[in-house]
Design a protein around this nucleic acid. Structure first.
Lengths: 222, 222
DNA sequence: CATCATTGGAAACAATTGTTTGAATGTTCC
DNA sequence: GGAACATTCAAACAATTGTTTCCAATGATG
């Protein structure tokens, strides 16, 4: 019989799945511990609190991701030796880094749902935690995007990046439901890699879209 | 002194705000009733259960929205007398309909966050409720989009519409946080209408993006 | 006047929550 | 072996949850 993973890993594995399925508040520690076949107190013993468990679930993905992404960006910058890295390559690199980490554990879908939850579930502590721990890698990325799209006003680029972030997170986090519909209506099985392939031209076109008409002059308050 | 709205309205108003701020599970009935200054039992008396209250909050937006949207589409179809309605006009009409309803109560932001929650918080009953009650409007809309984009394969259009749905919901539901950043970093106050203005060219470009390269032939399983 | 739906208040309900405790067990190292 | 430490376990804790009940007051409707 295969050796059981240790308690900490079992808790993380189970918590990850349940959080992704139901959200944080809707998943009790008893749900987790019973499904993981560990004692209830084990969570507080190993992680201290439910909050910390949530953060630990994210850290297990984001720590290797940031390492990998930084390395990939290093390589990319070396290849272009001080020059500008084209937007397509930046996006490609990001997509590859995001896909690689959870691919090792066949949990891409779960990770995407977690990312979606991190944004949507108001859980203030999580947003703060992610921002503080992993903000720098995104700052680096957006700076490279800035150089790749010099014609875009800063504010416009900021918003478009978040538009695309929404596209990706929303789609991949709701993937199961959407996949069912797509398969039923178009008889087409969709893998995550198919989705990435479909996303590529859409994201590029969106980032390169013409600038919006300028805002109408605001009337002074009477 | 201004006449207090009746109990049902006070509950709905307060629940809407609190749900949008913290999510459904994180908002207790006692939170709602104490802030709304109504008795705890009033919720179960008027709505039956917390689930029904959640659905009622949504219905208060979606009922007038569907009426308005259907009417706007009727008008649009009449204008184009059997012909094809351009994609831009369809999107414009949708945006206008979405904006009009909550604008009357100055609660656009809250409504958007609610929409985001409806998708992200796994709350199965809510998704089912919305799908069953309001699915037909979206079916009608997507059919019109189909005629406006005949060059797109059906599956591709399906995915791109959901990409854009993600863009809009994600952005508008996280609006407060994003707005703070944008205002701090770019000294620019962003209204919802500004966002819609910025979204327009992005969404159009995304829908009209070139088709992705065909999927690589799948190797047969060995 | 009588009837009935609505409000308010307080209390209790049973269930579930995250967390803590203290004893039992296992593991490690001298 | 034995001391020191880490882990597991069942049980209990205090707090909060959605829901129900009972009773009194109110206001509108017939």
């Amino acid at each position: 019989m295969a050796q059981q993973p240790d308690t900490v890993t079992r808790i993380l594995d189970t918590a990850e799945v349940l959080f992704a399925e139901r959200g944080f508040a809707e998943t009790s520690l008893r749900n987790i511990t019973s499904k993981a076949k560990v004692n209830l107190a084990a969570v507080n013993y190993h992680f201290g609190s439910k909050k910390s468990l949530i953060q630990a679930v994210f850290a297990r993905y984001l720590d290797p991701f940031t390492v990998r992404f930084h390395a990939a960006l290093d390589e990319l910058e070396a290849d272009h030796a001080g020059g500008v890295i084209p937007l397509e390559e930046l996006l490609e690199t990001m997509a590859r880094s995001v896909l690689e980490v959870p691919a090792e554990r066949n949990s891409l879908k779960g990770f995407m749902r977690l990312l979606g939850l991190a944004y949507s579930q108001a859980q203030g502590h999580l947003r703060r935690y992610i921002q503080e721990e992993y903000g720098s890698v995104f700052t680096r990325f957006t700076e490279l995007v800035r150089r790749a799209t010099p014609e875009l006003p800063d504010a416009e680029r900021f918003w478009r990046l978040h538009f695309m972030l929404g596209t990706v997170i929303f789609t991949l986090s709701g993937l199961d439901a959407l996949r069912d519909i797509a398969e039923k209506d178009y008889g087409e099985h969709v893998s995550v890699r198919d989705l990435v392939r479909r996303l590529r031209p859409v994201v590029v076109a969106a980032m390169n879209a013409p600038l919006p008409e300028p805002a109408p002059a605001r009337r002074e308050a009477g």
